[in-house]
Design a binder for these strands. Structure first.
Ligand SMILES: [Mn+2]
Ligand SMILES: [Mn+2]
Ligand SMILES: [Zn+2]
Ligand SMILES: [Zn+2]
Lengths: 135, 135
DNA sequence: ATCTAATTTTGTAATCGTTACAATTTTATA
DNA sequence: TATAAAATTGTAACGATTACAAAATTAGAT
């Protein structure tokens, strides 16, 4: 995966920080928080500032190569996958997984009252790993 | 609507503050924030504290008569409707509306990997009021 | 290669929503 | 009425995010 050219083709100058942050997001599909990203990169880039992580993610979002995943009130997660998809969060381990959902199947009553531009779906429950551990 | 008995039957002592806060939430289907609730009630109850609004909503949630609606990273909204339903948020006016969605129609690939306990759906776009104003 | 301007990164301080906590007030019980 | 329990309140603490200005890096012109 050529992150440098992905950034360039989205009008983002490929600084070291930007490359590493996008690379992390793309390779780690756990929907990490700012803190997770920072903690995992600061070893690589010792001068890294958390502000840069915030700034960079905002830049990515503004340029359409990253989105936020809001499930819990108190944690903002980030996602490099821009294709429409849903999420599943396990109550037990807290992990957030991608799920493929066919949103075209969704019908709702008030469809005539709104111009819908985006449909968000997230599920909550227990992942199989946790279910097996508990039992 | 008899809010006093609704609270009692859910093991919540019906203090003035609790009654008023639940009444507000039940009557105003806008999915208000803590600040909105506080601002609209402090005229009625001049001694009201924002902490009480926080505490009371937490109590309601713990006792299953209120839920949170998380759409935006930075605003927590509250809902007295506990039946499963979806939401629509207008980008333009910011209002959040209820929508009836048949979630049984939803199919997703990873259904065998997770035990799903709750399905959340929210839509974003423009409401008709805003569309008419803009055009 | 060198100078200069523009961009990016960084660290610190400010902000804001929420929570912790202790004091006060209200309510229930004897 | 006296006492204990519960609820409310105000203030302080907290943590995530943002604002901002200084420092460092990069790009462009000479
Ligand atoms: Mn995802
Ligand atoms: Mn609702
Ligand atoms: Zn799990
Ligand atoms: Zn609108």
């Amino acid at each position: 995966m050529d992150f440098v050219h992905l950034l360039i083709s989205n009008n983002i100058k490929p600084s070291l920080q930007r490359i590493k942050i996008f690379e992390y997001l793309y390779d780690n599909r756990e929907h990490p928080t700012v803190d997770t990203i920072y903690s995992n990169l600061v070893g690589d880039i010792p001068t890294l500032s958390k502000t840069t992580v915030y700034n960079t993610l905002k830049l990515f979002i503004d340029n359409g190569i990253t989105s936020t995943v809001t499930i819990e009130d108190n944690e903002v997660r980030y996602d490099a996958i821009m294709e429409e998809h849903g999420h599943f969060k396990c109550d037990n381990c807290g992990n957030v997984y991608d799920v493929e959902i066919d949103i075209s199947a969704l019908k709702f009553k008030e469809i005539k009252s709104f111009k819908v531009e985006k449909t968000n779906i997230y599920l909550k429950g227990k992942c199989n790993k946790c279910l097996n551990k508990i039992n």
